[in-house]
Design a protein around this nucleic acid. Structure first.
Ligand code: ZN
Ligand code: ZN
Ligand code: ZN
Ligand code: ZN
Lengths: 146, 146
DNA sequence: GTATTAATAGAAATGGTTTCTATTTATATT
DNA sequence: AATATAAATAGAAACCATTTCTATTAATAC
């Protein structure tokens, strides 16, 4: 989650291509989570040629490399978000305006420890996400959401 | 999550149909999470006619009514699990054998409180799931998984 | 038993996502 | 700077899990 995209990509053994950098820029300049298609529409303003599969591929690679984070949306579509917070944490996402807010208090360390001790399993990944309506959206419409 | 399916369905204003009951039976008799298509294949052993859309619809209704629980799988396909534990809790799911184990210690109450206080948002839903490899699978193959 | 409303089967459509292949581009090496 | 190499890309096509649609059937209340 560094600002020096070049070195971040090199660390991940990903070539530094204009499209890749542009995808990162798009996400970095957004305060909300975006779908691959939305990222693609924004990219087309800068590039005459750009394929949607390229966007999908890059977003997935970047998420794998922990440069961006994936949003687990109830509608089960893909969304990505560029998070500046470098430490382990989770998100409160607004289902209406798509704002993302950090949940900095992570009790996962405790949880993981107990899972290991009590269940004797190996943790591969975990999801902790709180879905709801943000302060602003609650004021706006009292809480109706799609 | 009661064993008396009839009354459970009535409470949800869902008609008590043979297919509906059979879907619940299928899930109840499984110790692992199942995809809609897998539930459907099992149903076809009992019913000469049964549509896959019926299975999808029923599973979704039952999940909405908190009779069964949905699994948030990394592969983003739908899976459902019948959980006997009636209290609020979360799951450790095995990515290899699909075993589900309860995580009974839920720190979510604390989390929710702080989200409300600090972010002033409304919580609509939350996901907390730990994905990994269960004790048995770790022994079996040392941890390789699809 | 009748009326009412929900549930269903089966076919068809949907659409987000992935695959495929030829071409281009970034990077390392001379 | 020129060359080699392996990765990245565009565009078209395929995929396939999930949803929609409509006529028919079945459950429930009265
Ligand atoms: Zn909002
Ligand atoms: Zn965490
Ligand atoms: Zn297992
Ligand atoms: Zn919880």
């Amino acid at each position: 989650m560094l600002r020096d995209f070049q070195s971040v990509l090199k660390k991940l053994h990903l070539k530094v291509t204009p499209k890749r950098l542009a995808i990162l820029e798009v996400l970095k300049n957004e305060s909300v989570y975006l779908s691959p298609e939305e990222v693609w529409r924004k990219l087309r303003k800068q590039f005459s040629q750009v394929g949607l599969p390229t966007v999908y591929r890059n977003l997935e690679e970047l998420a794998q490399g922990n440069v961006i984070s994936k949003v687990t949306h109830p509608n089960r579509q893909l969304y990505y978000y560029f998070c500046l917070n470098p430490s382990h944490h989770h998100h409160f996402i607004c289902l209406s305006c798509r704002t993302v807010e950090d949940i900095d208090f992570c009790m996962f360390r405790e949880l993981e420890k107990r899972v290991k001790q009590e269940l004797k399993g190996r943790v591969v990944s975990h999801i902790l996400q709180v879905n709801g309506l943000c302060k602003k959206c609650l004021k706006k419409d009292g809480g109706s959401h799609a």
